[in-house]
């Protein structure tokens, strides 16, 4: 129990639960199957993007070029399959898009790992460059006539919920993609030595080098992975809205970073869990999509989000302060009791 209380995730969970109950009691529609399906569906692209950024942040870095990577890689892929002579299929659509994302991500990784440039500046620059490439070479025209397989995958459902008014809510197959990404990220971070290396770099880069991690290679791979996951998210988003829109992801980086931070992932690196990320995502989705259910205008949602983040930061800071105090007191006790010797 103590252990659970010690985790930041616990507090987020409690707050989330309370908000859900509050909204649910004011408008029962919130707990309807339809609304839940809607929330889950809407969470898919956010979840994918957030998983990629979480890995980067845990390693002590940051990647704000991912919306640009997502946009550019899916748009180019779409262009090829829409205008080209080859029709392609859904697997190829994902594969090609992710490959472009990987390359764009590795460019970030190259500058960050090899030249030791600050990730914020590198990805700020590449964000600009990638959007620049998008608009100069490929334009900003929305692509609305997509290949048939994309439209059908968009509508492919696991089940469809129908409410009393006859409205139907599709629970899509592509939901599995975010589940897969989360699971993979969890396994890699928790059970592979490489994953532990990501935490190690995030905790102390110099220590990681001294212990013998190939930090440069790891960074290279991390940004590569981030690019790939960004492209995957972009592809799923395109499938979801059934059009290629080069402007729709602009500015998403801050939203995603907010989700990651709300999920208890330490912005300076070294700490975080997928479980926390899921909670942060759920919190964001509820605020973003459901405030309207209780009659709060959507203008307020960013305000509420801001307050929530502020409170959350306050809770974490307070807990850290208490924790430090505790450690100090324990030390003093130990000193008085055993004369400062370590327990032998």
């Amino acid at each position: 129990m103590k252990k659970i209380l010690a985790k930041n995730e616990f507090y987020l969970f409690v707050i989330l639960l309370m908000i859900c109950l509050l909204i649910g009691s004011m408008n029962p529609v919130f707990f309807s199957l339809g609304n839940m399906v809607d929330l889950l569906r809407a969470a898919v692209p956010y979840g994918i993007f957030a998983a990629g950024i979480m890995i980067v942040i845990v390693s002590g870095g940051i990647d704000i070029s991912f919306p640009a990577i997502a946009t550019l890689s899916t748009y180019v892929t779409l262009l090829l399959f829409v205008n080209g002579s080859y029709e392609g299929n859904i697997v190829l659509f994902f594969l090609l898009s992710c490959s472009i994302g990987l390359i764009l991500g590795l460019v970030n990784g190259f500058f960050i790992a090899v030249f030791d440039f600050p990730p914020l500046i590198v990805t700020l620059a590449t964000q600009s460059i990638y959007y620049g490439i998008q608009y100069t070479f490929f334009g900003s025209k929305r692509l609305t006539f997509l290949p048939e397989y994309i439209n059908s995958f968009s509508k492919a459902d696991l089940f469809t919920a129908v409410d009393e008014n006859g409205m139907s809510y599709i629970f899509p197959k592509y939901f599995f993609i975010v589940v897969f990404v989360f699971l993979l990220a969890f396994l890699v971070l928790r059970f592979t030595f490489m994953g532990r290396g990501i935490f190690a770099i995030g905790g102390s880069k110099s220590s990681a080098i001294r212990v013998g991690f190939n930090v440069k290679l790891l960074q290279f791979l991390i940004y590569g992975a981030s690019g790939t996951i960004a492209a995957l998210g972009g592809a799923v988003y395109t499938i979801m809205i059934r059009q290629g829109n080069p402007a729709s992801l602009i500015g998403l980086e801050m939203t995603i970073i907010s989700i990651v931070v709300l999920g208890g992932i330490e912005i300076n690196g070294g700490k975080g869990s997928i479980f926390g990320l899921v909670l942060g995502l759920a919190f964001f989705m509820v605020i973003n999509n459901s405030l309207i259910l209780v009659g709060i205008s959507s203008y307020w949602k960013t305000f509420v989000l801001g307050i929530a983040m502020y409170l959350y930061a306050a809770v974490i800071a307070y807990k850290r302060k208490m924790r430090n105090k505790q450690v100090h007191e324990i030390d003093m006790q130990a000193l008085q009791k055993e004369g400062g010797k370590v327990s032998e």
């Binding site: 030595f193 532990r196 935490f199 190690a200 995030g202 905790g203 102390s204 220590s207 690196g269 700490k271």
Partner: peptide, 24 residues
């Protein structure tokens, strides 16, 4: 040391490194 990792993981880090561990 790695401030963000547990005591156990910190102590075992070098051994795991020389062992060329892939799966933790």
């Amino acid at each position: 040391v790695f401030p963000n990792l547990t005591v156990a993981e910190n102590i075992s880090m070098n051994t795991e490194m020389t062992r060329k561990t892939k799966i933790v």
